[in-house]
Amino acid sequence: MTKRILIVDDSASIRQVVSTTLQGAGYETIEACDGMDGLKKLDGSKINLIISDVNMPKMDGISFVKELKANPAYKFTPVIMLTTESQEDKKAQGKAAGAKAWVVKPFQPQQMLTAVEKLVM
């Protein structure tokens, strides 16, 4: 069965690059443009992995992950933070919120696939 990955990023070009990379590896992708939109896309259906940006309008990535982890249906869904932020304190915030990995942009597609394959449920 094809695994589904939710991509949450306010940059359409980043969503497209991530989507292209994952679809090329056989994954199904769903896109959301910020944290709020990401929460709307969680309709109870099975999501195998989430890739989220940190700095986004309306709802940032850290708040989104906190909300996600509060939802019993997605409590154990692994999350990869994909961001330009490389500050250790931000990484610590991501870890505390429940993220499993921190990938700094710009990313190499192969790097992203390695992280996805390691964490996808």
């Binding site: 990023d9 306010d10 940059s11 070009s13 980043i14 690059v17 292209t20 700095n55 330009t84 942009k105 710009p106 990313f107 190499q108 597609p109």
Partner: peptide
């Protein structure tokens, strides 16, 4: 090139 196009996100920020 697709990787390099990610500059747009940095520019936006």
């Amino acid at each position: 090139i697709l990787v390099n196009l990610q500059f747009q996100d940095r520019l936006s920020q």
